[in-house]
């Protein structure tokens, strides 16, 4: 699709908005529908759109697979880490109330962090899924789509 100028232009305009929307969903999840997972999917979708329009090589330059693998893992680590922090601060695993002096503030902080972890992992995995499928070649295939 490298020759479709219109797609190129529109994609370039849209992708930033998609990203911003993703961030909005990420951090507004407390007040409206949305949260880490939905934000992650949308964030990932931004890269996927980029990949569809500009080709997978270009996408891999922006988000090299090893980096994406790492961020996917870091998301899980962040989530688990917040849980473990709760354990070290005298609460149970995943108890956010102890993260801060005020339990409600602790809950806020905890949810913010773990939602971020969720978003990170989900976005990364979405990119991984797309890139893996896009990068795969059947042994007998001829086309270079």
């Amino acid at each position: 699709m490298k020759q479709h100028l219109i797609l190129h232009v529109i994609a370039k305009i849209m992708i930033p908005f998609i990203m911003v929307f993703a961030l909005y969903v990420q951090f507004h999840g407390d007040y409206g529908p949305g949260g880490g997972f939905q934000a992650g999917v949308i964030f990932g979708a931004g890269f996927i759109l980029y990949g569809i329009v500009f080709g997978k090589e270009a996408t891999m330059k922006i988000v090299p697979p090893p980096l994406v693998y790492t961020t996917a893992a870091l998301g899980v680590l962040l989530y688990t880490g917040v849980g473990v922090a709760g354990m070290f601060l005298g609460g149970e695993f995943l108890n956010y109330s102890v993260l801060s002096a005020d339990p409600v503030a602790g809950q806020h902080l905890g949810i913010l962090l773990i939602e971020f972890g969720v978003g990170m992992t989900v976005a990364s995995v979405m990119v991984i899924l797309f890139l893996s499928f896009a990068d795969y070649r059947q042994p007998d295939s001829q086309d270079t789509d």
Binding site: A72, A73, G75, L77, V84
Partner: peptide
């Protein structure tokens, strides 16, 4: 559960 749960992403980072 926590021990393997910390270890799995670590492995994915190191590979």
């Amino acid at each position: 559960v926590v021990i393997p749960l910390l270890a799995a992403p670590l492995c994915a980072i190191i590979r």
